[in-house]
Amino acid sequence: MTAAQTQQAHGLGNRDLLDQYLAAGFAGRVGWGERVALLVIDMAGAWTSQDEMIGANLDGVLRNVRRLLDVVRTRDDIPVVFTTMAYDETYSDLPFPSRLKTPHLERMIRGSERVRLVPGLDRRPHEALIEKPRASAFFNTNLPSILAAQRVDTVVVVGCSTSGCVRSTCESAIDHGLRAIVPAEAVGDRSASAHEAALFDINARYADVLSVEEVVGHIERLPRTAGAVTTDA
């Protein structure tokens, strides 16, 4: 391969890359299963306050997350699971390489405002809250057990950040044999370019990226499932 060919192969725009993916069988659709859960990723102070080291204005994302919560909460057969990241003040549960790569984690002390959910989410007592030690909501948490107990086969993933914890959670979802759906307007990132690139990759590799309107419409049409199990926090 010539230098020019190498540059072209490594410089595809998203449209050209999507065409290449589609020709190769990438970017298929996982679709919806029968039992759905809503995963709200890291909508807490450290990520949603612009005064924080890695914070950003996610007001629009929060409005769309609230819209989905309002729809889901009209039913008793769709569990809601929230996540945050939190560590002991001694850092005994925060490996040193993680502190070197992402030192903002040292500020995420268990019990602090930084790791508390945004009050506007109005978390209910039966909606689980998981402290995850890494980007994925599945890594070293009881999320797989929570979902398995309710026979969930589809997760709707919302929250932040698109390029980090949302993407990682979607990758883990498909690794666990689950369908993942991402409402585009209900996820956000501090970087617009990282957000767009991550959504492209998520849609091509791990999940179906849909509009909030499409997701709301599908949930409203879902037949109610008997035998729902309440999730305790």
Results as ranks from 00 to 15, higher is better:
1 M>V: 12
68 L>P: 07
32 W>H: 02
213 E>L: 10
137 A>I: 09
208 D>M: 13
87 Y>A: 01
186 A>V: 12
42 D>I: 07
5 Q>M: 08
162 T>F: 09
217 G>I: 08
203 N>C: 10
72 V>G: 01
67 R>K: 06
149 A>F: 02
30 V>H: 14
92 S>P: 03
205 R>Y: 14
205 R>S: 06
66 R>L: 13
147 L>Q: 02
185 E>S: 04
154 T>S: 09
161 S>I: 01
31 G>R: 14
187 V>M: 01
4 A>T: 07
60 G>Q: 01
192 A>P: 10
93 D>H: 00
109 I>V: 10
156 V>W: 06
2 T>L: 08
29 R>V: 03
41 I>W: 01
34 E>A: 10
173 A>Y: 05
131 E>I: 05
200 F>D: 00
9 A>W: 02
42 D>L: 04
87 Y>I: 00
135 A>C: 14
49 S>T: 13
50 Q>A: 15
160 C>S: 12
126 H>F: 08
223 P>I: 01
13 G>L: 12
184 A>H: 10
121 L>A: 15
71 V>H: 02
134 R>Y: 13
112 S>Y: 01
225 T>Q: 15
139 F>V: 11
95 P>T: 07
141 T>P: 05
135 A>L: 09
199 L>A: 04
122 D>W: 02
24 A>T: 07
83 T>C: 06
195 H>N: 08
5 Q>G: 13
233 A>M: 15
104 H>C: 07
126 H>K: 12
78 I>T: 06
22 L>Y: 14
117 L>M: 09
177 G>R: 11
169 T>N: 13
182 V>F: 06
87 Y>F: 06
189 D>W: 06
174 I>A: 05
176 H>C: 05
159 G>F: 00
190 R>E: 01
131 E>C: 09
184 A>D: 09
56 A>V: 00
27 A>G: 06
91 Y>K: 00
86 A>P: 00
1 M>P: 15
130 I>C: 07
59 D>Y: 03
222 L>C: 05
137 A>L: 08
54 I>Y: 02
28 G>P: 09
65 V>R: 02
98 S>I: 09
79 P>W: 05
85 M>C: 11
37 A>S: 07
214 E>A: 14
129 L>N: 14
175 D>T: 11
104 H>R: 15
141 T>W: 03
160 C>P: 08
145 S>D: 11
71 V>I: 11
198 A>K: 08
26 F>N: 09
147 L>P: 02
222 L>W: 07
99 R>L: 14
8 Q>H: 11
222 L>G: 07
154 T>K: 13
98 S>R: 08
54 I>P: 14
11 G>P: 06
154 T>L: 12
49 S>V: 04
62 L>K: 03
73 R>Q: 05
169 T>R: 03
120 G>E: 11
